[in-house]
Design a protein around this nucleic acid. Structure first.
Lengths: 223, 223
DNA sequence: CGCACCCTTGATTAGCCTCAAGCCAGGTGG
DNA sequence: CCACCTGGCTTGAGGCTAATCAAGGGTGCG
């Protein structure tokens, strides 16, 4: 995946990432370092975060448009590189690159569904744990976890905007988890103890390999 | 969009639509008549509906996999046709077809974000109205609305599974709307009075043309 | 007739929100 | 150096929203 070191762009924390350049309708970019999130801001100021974007993730022009519908904002200082294949790349390599990008898009979609389930069907405690497990797993996948605790450059407000809860309630939920000893927040980092238990408690399903236990649909009625 | 009348498939209400055939990794299909929905079923039986699929919508193999992650289920009797271009189609037409499919995918994505906002940031009443407005608009776009009221082959349970609410509460919300006179349910159909007001009340933003009112992001803090 | 399926309603409880206030750390300027 | 401010975290009190439990009604169908 390190085939395209070229044209690094930097953004400060809080900046909106725009890839809407006229010619760049299909522009794609990969995060090298830092965090971002994709979100919508409603006219009354309420915000909903759709996804967190970590190092290794792809941002495309589609995802990064207007904040009124869907925009990308840097949560920390951010470095991205262009994801287009070089002009001087052979066909096989181009094919590999676009395969990687397709795969990334598929995972992004799955995460969106996970997020919908979180907000639609999980309680506050479950949501928080579920999201933390997802973020921890993704950071591990790209080798950004050393030791037991995970660096999370995220305020409780951001958490609230992602999970559809109020800041106050996020705070209380974290407090409860802290008192149970399962989740410890400290200076922008989290430690998750006994992940298996946490995963069960929050109905978290790892996205690493398959093992998806199906359920049979009850028949839906017709009206 | 009527360029491919070939091989109609039918499914009964309640059937799961599977497009996972080995060779059909990229198979896509268009709904000719009937409704379906994309959903996940959790092991404990809870369900979350991600999207409703109406006539004219595309179902791809990606969307229709296992019900434990993402599956498609017919809500009514369903007829679909293959969306692949013919072998005997000229290049320009193929290009048009794939353009249409890309556009459809983009709209589907936008609707997913709308759905996230509904569940994360709207109250029960707002959610119900917002979803009804979306469905009405989409049905109008494909010419399936005649007169004031819209046919909705949807039980309150399906509504609840889509909006992350309990059946009971959906019922009470509908009752309230009925009493206000703005929304009338009758035998699988709805009538929406004064849509402009309903749209304002539910923060609904039509997806027909642009007019997206942006908001400025407050800066996000770093930890 | 009896069963399924869906809608409806009441009573009670729990979960989450809002308002409000206080704390702490870091940064800035006088 | 200290006063002040800002941004983020924490906590209490009170209230509303939505879930749960429970029961009953209507309709279509075998």
């Amino acid at each position: 995946v390190r085939a395209f070191w070229r044209r690094v762009e930097r953004f400060p924390a809080g900046a909106q990432i725009r890839l809407e350049g006229v010619a760049a309708a299909h522009k794609q970019v990969i995060i090298v370092s830092g965090w971002a999130c994709q979100l919508r801001i409603l006219r009354d100021g309420r915000r909903q975060i759709f996804a967190f974007l970590l190092p290794g993730d792809v941002i495309d022009a589609h995802a990064a448009a207007s904040l009124g519908t869907r925009g990308v904002v840097a949560l920390t200082r951010l470095e991205v590189v262009n994801a287009e294949p070089y002009p001087g790349m052979d066909l096989a390599e181009r094919e590999r690159v676009s395969e990687v990008l397709r795969e990334a898009a598929a995972q992004r979609e799955t995460r969106l569904y996970d997020h919908l389930v979180r907000m639609g069907r999980l309680s506050a405690k479950e949501r928080v744990v579920h999201l933390l497990l997802e973020l921890a797993e993704r950071l591990e996948n790209v080798g950004l976890v050393k030791g037991e605790s995970v660096r999370l450059p995220i305020t409780q407000e951001v958490f609230a905007d992602a999970l559809g809860l109020s800041i106050v309630h996020i705070n209380r939920t974290l407090k409860q988890l802290r008192q149970e000893g399962s989740v410890v927040f400290k200076l922008g980092s989290v430690t998750l103890h006994d992940r298996a238990r946490l995963a069960a408690l929050s109905h978290y399903q790892s996205r690493r390999e398959g093992a998806a236990p199906d359920a049979e649909p009850r028949s839906f009625g017709v009206t």
